[in-house]
Structure formats: C-alpha cells, structure tokens
Design a binder for these strands. Structure first.
Lengths: 411, 411
DNA sequence: CAATGTTAGTTCTGAAATTAATTAACGTTA
DNA sequence: TAACGTTAATTAATTTCAGAACTAACATTG
C-alpha cells in the first residue's frame, strides 16, 4: 500500500500461498471496514467481501482469536433474529498520536475506535534544533507512564507535523535538523520507542480525517484549506489522500501571487504564504498596531508579539473594523489561491479547516467572491464550500487513520 | 469503474452470484493486462490474478471461446518447454477513434492491439455549429464503408476533443451547441451509430496514452503539457487519469497570470491561455508581422492569417531570431504555469506533448528556467522533464485505451 | 400462548479451486 | 541419440468455499 513504514523499507511480502494471500487480503478489508464503520454484521461483511456468510464467519472467528475484533452484542431491530455486531477490539492496539506544531505539541493515546484515552498538551514548539526530538521522546515516555499503558498495549506511533515530508524516506525537509544524522526522523524515533512510527504532514492528516469522519465523508474529490505557519492545501483524489511523488503535493503556499511581494522563507518572492499565512498576518498586524493603527488590538501596543491569529479573530468577533478588514483581505487572497487549485483539481467539496474555522464569518464571503472571479463558472456548479464539523480533531483522526491503514496494509 | 458510459447511466450490475462476480472480475483483469502487455503466459496471469494455473487455464479457455483472446503461439526461450502466449484477438473488436480538433478531424479504426487498420483525415473543424455532429456522422459512415468493416466487427467509438467535458453527462460544455437538444453528445452519437460512444477530453486522452504506452509508463504521478487552442494539462494520479469531480481537472489555461492582461474567451482577464496558447501566439505574431516586424515570417505579410503555430516553429528552426524569441518567451510563461502545477501535484515526470514537441529546442530551456525560479527546489530532485516519444499518436492510443478500459469494466 | 412471519447463523453438500503429482515439450550434453 | 535438466501444462488429490437446507432467535398476531 502507501509508503512511510518506518521499519521495513523494501521488505518483500513473504512468499505465501494463494489461499493465505486471499485470506489476509480479506482480513485486511474487514479490519479497514470495521475501523471506519464502527460495527458491522456478518451479512454486511459478506457482501462487502463478496464471500459467503460461512466463510466470513470463520474469518471473523480468527480475528477474534487474535484479539483484533470483538463481538459487540446484538443489534437492535424490528423483527427477526437480531444479528450480532462485530467491531474492533478497543481494549487492545492503542496508538499514540503526536501532534506537533509551531505553537505546542500534543500527545494523545487513542483506542481502535478513535476515543482519546489520554491527552497531554506539552509546551514544546516545533523548531529546527536537533534537541527537539530527544525532548519529544522523553515527553513521550512520561506520557506513556502517566497513561498507565504497557509496552504491548501500544502498537504504533503517528506523528503529524508541518513541513515538506519526504514520504519514502520519512524525513522532514523543512525542518532538516530533526533528521538525526542521516537516519530518517521516523526511523530514529522508532528505534527510541521500539514501535513503528508513521510520519505525516499535518495538512494531509487533517484532510484524511475530514475524508473519513468529517464533512468530506464519501466524497471522492476534496480540497481542504488550512492556515497555520503557512497555507496548507489538503487533497483527496479518488477518495484517497494525494501525496504526490515525494509526498509534497499541495504546496499552495509557495505559488507566486505577487511578483513585487516580500521574500518568503523558502527563498522565492511573493509566495501566497507571504501575504496570507498566519505568520504573515501576525507580522502585518503587529506592524500596523505599532505604527498607530486604530483598533481594539491597540491594547497590545506595548507588547505586539502577543498578537496572534487568535487575537486577530477575537477582535474581529468584537466588531473591530480593522481586524475585519484584514480578514476580508486574507480571505480574498486565499480565494484567489484556491481558485487556482479548483481549476486544477475540480473538487466537489472544499472544507475550511483549522484556525480559520472561527473566522469563517469574515473570510467565507470574500473567499467565494474571489473564487467566482477567478474560476470558470462550470467548476462552481457541482462544488460546495463547507466548514469543518470536527472541532479541531480532524488532524488527530487523520493521523490515527493513517497509522491504522498502514498497519492493516501489513496484515 | 469510471464514468461516461454513453448508454447506461446508473444501471446496477445484475444481482449475480459471488462466483460469477469473481470470475468476471478476473476475466476483466486478464483482458486489461493483455491489452497493455500484448501477450502473456498462463503462469504470468496466474501470479497476476493470485490464482492457480488450472484456474487461469479454464478462465482463458472461456475467453478464447468468446473470441476475446487468442493463442499467439509458443514463446521463444532458452531451455525447458516453451509456454504458449496468449493475447487479445486482433481479428475482432475493432474500435473507432475520432480525433476532433479545431484544425481537422481524423477517423481511425484500430484493432485490439492498437494497430491502425484504417485512417481518414477529413476536413472538418470543430466549431460551435450544431451541424458539426451530423457531418461527423456521415463522414463516419463513409469511413466505415471505405474500411470495409462490418457492423459487428466494430464494438465502440471513442471521441477525443478539446473543451470542458462533463464526464457524467458526456457533454462538451465549451462547445455547447454540439449537445443536440438536451441529449448528451455521446448519447446522440451513440443512437446514430448504434454503438457505445465514449467521450474524452483530448489532453486527458494524450496523457493516458503516454501513461500506458509512452514515456510515463509505470510512473504514478505524471503531468503532460500540451499546447493547442488552449493550454492543456494532462494529469495522472496514482497511475490513473485524473478527471476531477465533473471531468474538468487540469484547466491550467484559465489561471490568471496577468491581472492587466487581455480578455480571455472564457470571460476572465489575463488567463495563461491569453499569453501562450497556440491561438494567442498566432494572433500576436500576425499582429507583429503586420506592423512590420523583421522576420522570415514577413513573407506572409500580405496573408498573415496563414501564419500558424507550425509556421512559427518552422521559422525558428530556420534560425529566425524573432520566432525564437517568441518561443522562448512562451516557454517561460508555460514554465511559470507548470511551476504552479508542480507545487500542487509533485509529479515524478513531466511530458511535453503535442505540437510543442517540435519546438522543444526553443522552449525547454526557458521552461526549466521558470520552473527553477518558481518551484521549491525539493520538488525538482525526483522530477524529470521529457519529450514525448510517441510521434503524435499518444492521443489516439489514449482514446483507444479509454474505450477499452471502459468496455473491460463492463465485462 | 401457540402459530406464524422474519431475519440470523450453522450445518451440510456439491462445486470449484488450490496444491501436488504427473506428463509433455524442449535443449543440452554425455 | 539417449539421458538429463528445465520449464509448461495437464491430470489427480485435497482443500476450501459457495449455496442450500436447516436451526435459532426474535416479534407479532390471532
């Protein structure tokens, strides 16, 4: 299946018989289906697998033996004998989800049904120091102790972080120092924790979460837009996360929108990121406030570095017209960038995610305005724009999904 | 499988038994594999299908009965008994490929191994008149007679044409008049010819051809660039043509590159198409020559409308510095547009196709220049830019493939 | 509360497919 | 040219699986 298994690189699947192969394929399908659907009857699985009920019965029996699956009791129904529901065993196979951002880091432990059984928000910012990873490992071990999870209850670790993530080599190319020596980031972390480690870009994790459990459920062609340090575009193509050849797909933030613009940290000039990323907005607002801009945000005049994107949005919600103008403008630029992506991807739905969600009132209208202006009208007809409904958990759900789908793929 | 079957819209697969379902799945796989690989031994097919040799033998026997497959004699080999090779029967199941462009129309009949058994270039330009289609039908019927093919030897028709092709409804939204009344274009043509008709955008056909039989063979993430009336971007994602939600994906030509640019026929301002499409280049050269530009092309001064993209490229090949400058510039703009697509798609290969191929000497360098300037450098490392090797047949191969893959999908 | 209808799940049987064994077809070599 | 090595394909055997028949579990109804 995909890539980014941290431990095995090109290990060939052991030469197995045809019947074993088919069985593992089917078991994998069962697990993946139970993972997204929660519970399922034998009859459901039989039609899903194009197999007979007796076959599925023995298949599921085996999965119960290995403690992957558990019976969830009978379903409620109107008439007739009630079917027994099966689901993933939630008492085993916990996964650690580590959400790394430039603001802080969160360590979560989730069960197979994606319930958070433990959460720790730690004051560790993503930076380019090689010490970052070793701190993370010690925080991780502490969390494991606090959560009271034993070694063998945890099966894998998923890490989501911003930056260009080289999928095959599981390295972060934006934060190069994180790759200890020549080893891949994930491989190193894996050696430290003795667990398989899966690395995924934060935007791709978010869109994966939306695709499986959010507003994009069942949709085949999806874009999700996310604003953070940079502008992230998450892409679902034919129902699957689109990574591109090296894992870099969706770098909307580094397309040029202003030839006379500012220098971007990537070295190019006038990238979309220099106009409308969280970092760019903060800088701009801080500059404006310092130079006497009239605004509710002026209360921060003596400590402008306290102004973040959240403060900006809060001010807008309080009716501050300067803040509203800034957000309107950001929305328009975002829409302009989105319009390009729409022309290329022809999505059926666009999901607004991340911190932007709370600014929806102020940016949605100008986003739509820009899209109408810069997109061919035929593209608009079958397309909707929606806000995330997942309350900020899309990224975690997506990271968990990414880990589980990889685990299922290796039977 | 995909969409755009002209005859059946949402017809559900007949409720069939599990064993029948599996058999048709396997037969479909066999056909698809033989289609791209030409010939194949039973052992090959067995590993492909994850089945035993005896099973595959009976499967293939059945396909021979239905005259889809034929034995191709023994393979040559070093030692041991020679395996029998099987391939698609080339004496049956011919497909008509109709290549419609704004310059002319070509009608081809191809056998299952993609050999052209008949070709007719007809003087019919794609235009927005509703009479176009009826002319095409009569040309088509004439060609059928000339080729000496009987009704039942032809199984389907594939039409490639420029424009926005609404996949689900098989309509051409750019050339709206072609859609007779409310019926879809393909459906109407299908009724006239009594064959299933598949409609595909020309750029998508081209990239499909490159993906299956050209330089992009085996590549998963591919972009192909094509210049014609507009700029076409063909996209292969995870090894399959990317259509988008409605079939419009890849409209690179209508992203804005110059806010102060010319009005595009789409209604927007400064689209890439207004700078560097064949139409735009022709217009510009014609204007320049008329107003006294020094160039070999000045021989056309009294009949500038004779200057097409081919004449421009010819002049460049003769060393005309004006023509070379124009092409250099076009390459640079094209590269700038491509850079955006690269940032979003992170392809492993970009293929230069269509009329551009012959201008490669003049545009490749500036394309690369622009890409280096506007792309993150990490994107360049795993990416190559290549010229098509298919001598202009990519589009036909792709159209044929599109038809065949759809036919195989409906067993 | 027995009879009946409905759906689920198990048991059983015949069909189908896998695996193993055998035969076939070829080249090489003694 | 006959024996042997090698690979293919067929036949035989054993296993697996689908489909049907049957049993189980529930609600409703007379």
């Amino acid at each position: 299946m995909p890539f980014s298994d941290s431990l095995l690189e090109d290990e060939l699947p052991a030469q197995q018989s045809v019947v074993d192969y088919k069985k593992s394929q089917k078991q994998r399908k069962v697990l993946a289906h139970l993972y997204v659907n929660g519970t399922c009857t034998l009859a459901n699985l039989a039609t899903l697998l194009h197999s007979s009920v007796p076959s599925v019965t023995s298949l599921v029996d085996e999965l119960i033996q290995t403690e992957w699956v558990a019976s969830m009791g009978p379903a409620i129904g109107n008439n007739g004998r009630r079917p027994v529901l099966f689901g993933l065993n939630t008492k085993r196979n916990f996964v650690a989800v580590i959400d790394v951002s430039i603001h802080d880091t969160k360590i979560l432990f989730m069960d197979t049904q994606r319930h958070i059984v433990f959460r720790d928000d730690i004051d560790l910012q993503l930076n380019n120091h090689s010490s970052f990873l070793s701190s993370l490992v010690s925080y991780f071990n502490t969390a494991l102790l606090k959560a009271g999870l034993s070694e063998d209850e945890l099966i894998a670790v998923g890490i989501s972080m911003p930056g260009l993530i080289d999928a095959r080599r599981a390295r972060n190319l934006t934060y190069k120092q994180l790759n200890q020596t020549e080893e891949s980031l994930a491989r190193w972390f894996s050696a430290e924790t003795n667990k398989p480690v899966y690395l995924i870009n934060d935007t791709k994790a978010t869109v994966l979460g939306e695709s499986r459990f959010g507003g994009a459920q069942g949709k085949k062609q999806v874009l999700s837009i996310n604003i953070d340090w940079g502008i992230g575009l998450g892409i679902i193509v034919n129902g699957e996360v689109f990574h591109g050849a090296s894992g870099f797909a969706g770098e909307l933030g580094h397309i040029q929108v202003d030839p006379d613009g500012e220098l971007c940290h990537c070295g190019k000039i006038g990238c979309l990121n220099t106009c409308t990323s969280a970092a760019a907005l903060e800088q701009r607002v801080q500059r404006d406030i310092l130079s006497g801009q009239v605004s509710k945000l002026a209360i921060f005049k003596d400590s402008v570095d306290q102004i973040g994107i959240t403060e900006l949005i809060d001010a807008a919600h309080q009716g501050d017209s300067y803040a509203i103008d800034i957000l309107h403008e950001a929305g328009y630029l975002l829409g302009k960038g989105l319009a390009i992506a729409i022309n290329l991807f022809n999505p059926e739905i666009i999901i607004i995610d991340g911190v932007l969600t709370s600014a929806a009132n102020f940016i949605l209208s100008t986003i739509e305005q820009a899209i109408s202006k810069y997109c061919l009208s035929d593209f608009r007809n079958d397309m909707t724009i929606e806000l995330t409904q997942l309350n900020g958990s899309a990224k975690w759900l997506g990271t968990h999904t990414y880990v589980m789908e990889n685990i299922f793929a290796n039977h």
